[in-house]
Design a binder for these strands. Sequence first.
DNA 1: TTTAGTTACTTACTTTATGTAAGTTAGTAT
DNA 2: ATACTAACTTACATAAAGTAAGTAACTAAA
Lengths: 106, 106
Amino acid sequence: MDQSSILCPRFAKAMKMMGQRWTGLVIYQLLTGPQRFCSIESSLPISGRLLSERLKELEQEGIVKREVFPETPVRIEYSLTEKGMALEPLLRELEKWSQNWIEVEN
Amino acid sequence: MDQSSILCPRFAKAMKMMGQRWTGLVIYQLLTGPQRFCSIESSLPISGRLLSERLKELEQEGIVKREVFPETPVRIEYSLTEKGMALEPLLRELEKWSQNWIEVEN
DNA sequence: TTTAGTTACTTACTTTATGTAAGTTAGTAT
DNA sequence: ATACTAACTTACATAAAGTAAGTAACTAAA
């Protein structure tokens, strides 16, 4: 478990983030536009507990922006920052790959 | 936890795979060419236990190919299949994104 | 002919992450 | 007061990951 070749720390960090359950799908969902908590929650098979956790992490990374609208009941919108938007090509590549190489069923 | 919009099952499956710890890094490492177990193990901070598990999963998905050379001691080489190679653009996108948007330290 | 060395794994066990469900907070509306 | 809503939290069970030691098959050295 000692590394002989050095992994680029930026790349390793990005991998650690994207290689976390739900992160990619949450960002993918936000590519369709700003959305509130319950909307993301119902578009993915993720629980509120984890969605809350992931959104917090993504906000800290500067990938997601959280905006509070003091309406009734309160509306909170999540959207992608420029850094988050920059992930679109990556997600489109995964989309393409999955269309070309994954068959469903199992 | 009910989905109102339907997630494409191919994309969801690809996400589940790539959004697993180490999967992306193992494939990234194999992009540099066929390699044996101990070589991958020492190039990433992954343990033998998990590397063995991931390689088995990737082999089952048809992303990685395992070849046994009955030398002394036995040599086993892992390489990417065509399906695995097709993930290169995706990994290059992540590489680019990380160079542009991630700063190291923390 | 014991002893040690090599690669490629397994097994056993601990810690961390995730899944599930119920509960909380703040602000109306009835 | 009671109920309703959105957005979370908390508590607890299960699954996945981390760590370290062990195994199998073979060779090479003492």
